[in-house]
Simulated scan of single mutants.
Amino acid sequence: MASSHSALLLGDSAAFTAALRTLVNNPRFSDVTFLVGGEQQEVFAHRCLLSCRCEAFHAMLNQPRETQAPLLLSHVQPEVFLAVIEYLYTNCVTLNNAIALEVLTSSIEYGLNDLRKLCVEFIKDSLTVEQACEALQAAVAYGQMDLQMHCLAFIENCTREVVHTCGFLELSELAMQTILQSDCLAIDEVELIHVVQEWAHVGSAVLGSPVRDVAKGVVSELRLALLSPSELTTLEKENKKDQMIPIEILAEAWKMHALWKGRGTRSCLCHRRHGTLPREHHRHLVPQHK
C-alpha cells in the first residue's frame, strides 16, 4: 500500500498581496467604516480581515453583525491609520518621514509587533537632525531601547546641530535627562547649559511654571565643575535672573574646584564630554574622558 504524501506549496505571494491591496479602503464588500481624524474621514475595511490580523481590532469589532454604526477614531490621522490598514491587509507598509513616528505609536497601541519593527528600522535608516529629538522622545516614551540608543548616538555625533532644533525644545524631562547623562555629546558645557536654559524657558511658558521647577529634574546632570572659575562666576550672575540652577548645585561645583587635589573630584559630573573645550583645571579632574 503506497504511503500518503502531503506538502505545503507556496503560490505567487506578490500576486496575493497585490489582490489584497485592492481591498484597502475599498467600500466594495466593506462591512465596517471608521471615521478617522479631526475631519472624520471615512475609511472602509473588512471585519474578518482586521479581526484575524489584530487582537485589538478583534476586541473592537467583537459586536453583533447588524451593528453598522461607524467607529470613531479621532486620535489618529487618516494617513497614519491607512498605513496600519495597508499593513494588516498586505503585510507591507508604505512609510515616509512625516508619518513614521505616528505609525510606530499606532503599532504599539494595536500590539502589532512586526509593524513596530518595520517602523523602527525605517526611522533609524532615515533619521535627520530635525527629527532626532522627536524620535528619541518616542523611543523613551514607549520603551524602545534599540531606537533610543540609535537616536542618542546620532545626537552625540550631531549635538550642536540637534540642540538648535524645535524638537530639542519640546523634549520631555526624561528624554532630556537621557541626553545630558551622555559623556559623548559633541558640545561644550557652557553652550549646553545655555540650550538647556532655553529649553526650560520654553517649558515654563507652555506649562505656566517657574523655570527652576521645569528644570529641576535635569540641572543636576549639567557638569558645572567643567567650567573655569570665571565662567562659573558669570553663570552665577546670569542665574540670578531665573534661578534655574539651585544654589547648592553651584556650591558643589565650587567645592569640586577647591578640592581638586583630593578625592572630591571623583564624580561623574567631572567627566569631560567629547565636545568639552579644554580648561587649565581639567588636568586635575579624574578620571579623564577619552
Results as ranks from 00 to 15, higher is better:
91 N>T: 10
65 R>T: 10
66 E>V: 08
62 N>H: 08
94 T>W: 05
48 C>Q: 11
73 L>M: 14
38 G>L: 13
61 L>C: 07
56 A>G: 07
54 C>R: 02
86 E>T: 10
50 L>R: 06
39 E>L: 12
82 L>N: 00
60 M>Y: 07
91 N>C: 13
66 E>C: 08
37 G>C: 05
64 P>R: 02
93 V>F: 00
38 G>H: 12
48 C>V: 12
91 N>V: 04
36 V>W: 04
49 L>N: 04
70 P>I: 13
81 F>H: 06
45 A>E: 02
38 G>N: 06
37 G>S: 04
36 V>D: 11
54 C>S: 11
56 A>I: 09
36 V>H: 07
51 S>I: 09
41 Q>V: 13
47 R>N: 04
93 V>R: 00
90 T>G: 02
47 R>T: 06
66 E>I: 05
69 A>Y: 01
88 L>H: 05
90 T>E: 08
43 V>D: 01
70 P>V: 05
72 L>P: 05
70 P>A: 08
66 E>L: 06
63 Q>K: 15
47 R>A: 02
83 A>L: 13
50 L>T: 03
68 Q>E: 12
47 R>F: 12
40 Q>D: 08
67 T>S: 15
41 Q>A: 09
44 F>S: 00
47 R>I: 07
69 A>N: 07
92 C>H: 04
64 P>S: 10
52 C>D: 02
83 A>Y: 06
70 P>L: 08
64 P>N: 04
60 M>C: 08
80 V>F: 09
55 E>W: 02
41 Q>E: 13
91 N>R: 15
48 C>T: 09
50 L>Q: 05
88 L>Y: 07
90 T>N: 10
45 A>V: 11
77 Q>D: 14
61 L>P: 04
66 E>S: 05
49 L>Q: 06
65 R>L: 11
91 N>Y: 03
73 L>R: 09
